[in-house]
Nucleic acid binder design. Structure first.
Lengths: 129, 129
DNA sequence: ATAAGGCTTCCCGTGACTGGAAGGTCAAGA
DNA sequence: TCTTGACCTTCCAGTCACGGGAAGCCTTAT
């Protein structure tokens, strides 16, 4: 399977697939002409990676998850630990963004948004307290 | 005022302040020995920038907001427009992260997290549907 | 024979910094 | 006066996960 077919099969851009090979996440075969040749197992790995990335896992976590996936003697506790830590990071980001959203939405509502210069948004940004 | 004092006064790292000068957000004076010298107005700008960044505004938006802040003939509508667009981006991010969190927290709850290999997290990541 | 499209590698750019090296400057103490 | 340590300066490289684009080879169809 060519790289563009692997891309279509996984939803990943070809560029991303090459990058994943660069950093050692997948290892496709090579044809005599130098083209990559993706076997079903490699495509399956790519799909796994695409799903893990879609859940926000970083590349390092993806590497670990992939290794656990391929390890038949894994302990599910190891998988859960990674997911749990990642979940905590996501919740922290949500909390940060929610705080920003609350502040911002209040400011946006308060701002007249007309042609006059007075603006509570700028007042808040420049307040000296 | 030296850069380290400006840093203390604004909460920004000195490195960040130098970066802001590099990209033209502030323009501190220079002493004869080459040291930067921050007047009160520049420190005020830095505080403005620190607050805007804390609300998640990107550097380009910060530049625009700073220009509007210094423009006495500004229309508050322009400020509001920037804040409103940024708010929409934040809400999109929150939605994305919330979807991840929901999926992940469900998986984490479902996973036994013991020494056996069976794991719904990996099952989901590798599912073929 | 040629043209279009796919494949390859390689290098640069992204955002907003952060770390570190190499070296000049300053204030205080021995 | 000398030295030490804490500043300050510039410049270069790295971060994360790719994306854009160039230069050139390979394949397929006309």
């Amino acid at each position: 399977m060519n790289i563009s077919q692997a891309a279509k099969a996984t939803g990943l851009p070809a560029k991303t697939i090459r990058y994943y090979e660069d950093i050692g996440l997948v290892r496709p075969d090579r044809r005599t002409n130098g083209y990559r040749d993706f076997a079903a197992a490699e495509v399956h790995k790519l799909r796994f990676l695409a799903r893990a990335r879609a859940l926000g896992f970083g590349i390092d976590n993806c590497r670990s998850l992939l290794a656990l996936w391929e390890d038949r003697d894994r302990a599910s506790a190891d998988v859960r630990q990674i997911a749990h830590a990642h979940l905590a990071e996501i919740e922290e980001k949500i909390a940060d963004l929610t705080a920003m959203r609350d502040t911002l939405s209040h400011l946006v509502v308060t701002c007249a948004g007309d042609d006059r210069p007075d603006c509570p948004i700028l007042n808040t940004l420049s307040s000296s307290d």
